[in-house]
């Protein structure tokens, strides 16, 4: 048994080659389409993008498509609209889910089990099932065709409440007990003991609230009718439906929608993968 001499974790050179080869194949499959879109967005009008021998590197790279797409649809104000919605949703979830998660995990009160059960029960309800009635309610509140109306239903998501509860539950009871004996109020326990211990999960909630709001399509499509108020996803579909003749412009538009998400994720990904290791992401 020649293998047993080396540790179980060491990898033979042959296996290493195979693994890297496979990793590269998957890399091309997963990232390739994005790079192709980026390449298309940088190709000048003089370069034929419909060709049987496509070139990956643009012959005369140009940013003019980004200026051109802004002349066709107000893409930068759409990006601003998406940002407004995303910020509202992030704030709502960071505050609302943290408060409720803390109360459900650390405070004892009559009816807490029932409340927890209700939060859990919403998980079997896909958002698409209630979307029409949500629209009826948002319109009734006077927020139809507004960015607030877009942000409102997702501003506190039940899943995030439950995730924050799980995070608060994992704080050892004796840490909290000392504070209770010292006479700390619930508020002080939340700020001084709770928050510093749930930063990882809070980051996960913030990242995913942002991505959820920025990427969402069906709900803003239903709420918004005025083209000036479109978010990026709705605006891009509008661009695609109306001006599909020039793929360079659509490519530029998709990059404007995609790159900010990549930046946000790249900045915060270490929290995310820490959360994965801690078993935070269970689907």
């Amino acid at each position: 048994m020649a293998r047993s001499g080396r540790g179980f974790n060491s990898i033979s050179p042959a296996e290493k080659v195979v693994r890297y080869a496979l990793l590269l194949v998957v890399l091309v499959i997963t990232v390739g389409p994005f790079l192709w879109q980026l390449s298309t967005s940088l190709k000048s009008v003089s370069e034929d993008v419909f060709t049987q021998t496509p070139t990956f590197i643009p012959q005369h790279p140009t940013l003019s498509n980004f200026a051109e797409v802004a002349k066709t649809i107000p893409v930068w104000s759409y990006a601003g609209n998406s940002l407004i919605v995303a910020v509202l949703v992030v704030l709502g979830n960071a505050i609302g889910a943290t408060f409720a998660g803390f109360a459900l995990a650390k405070l004892r009160f009559r009816g807490s089990k029932l409340v927890l059960g209700l939060f859990l029960a919403t998980l079997i309800l896909p958002s698409e099932v209630t979307i029409i009635s949500q629209y009826v309610i948002v319109r009734g509140l006077g927020f139809a065709d507004t960015l607030i109306g877009v942000a409102l239903p997702g501003a506190i998501q039940m899943l995030n409440v439950l995730l924050m509860r799980t995070a608060f539950l994992s704080i050892p009871a004796d840490v909290d007990a000392a504070a209770i004996i010292d006479g700390a109020t619930a508020w002080q326990r939340l700020i001084r003991i709770g928050l510093p211990n749930v930063r990882g999960m809070l980051s996960v909630v913030v990242i995913f609230s942002f991505i959820f709001a920025w990427d969402d399509f069906l709900w803003p499509l239903i709420v918004l009718t005025d083209p000036d108020k479109y978010t990026l996803t709705v605006g891009l579909q509008y661009l695609n439906g109306t001006f599909s003749s020039n793929p360079r412009l659509i490519a530029a538009g998709t990059m404007i929608a995609f790159l900010p998400i990549v930046v946000v994720f790249a900045l915060l990904q270490r929290f995310f993968f820490k959360g994965v290791d801690a078993g935070a992401i269970k689907g």
Binding site: G96, A103, V115, F119, T130, P153, M158, A186, W187
Partner: peptide, 18 residues
């Protein structure tokens, strides 16, 4: 106090889910 902390999420639970 617990109800105060839960209130926002509970409102969302009722208005936008239930």
């Amino acid at each position: 106090t617990p109800w105060l902390l839960i209130a926002p999420a509970a409102v969302w639970l009722v208005v936008f889910n239930a």
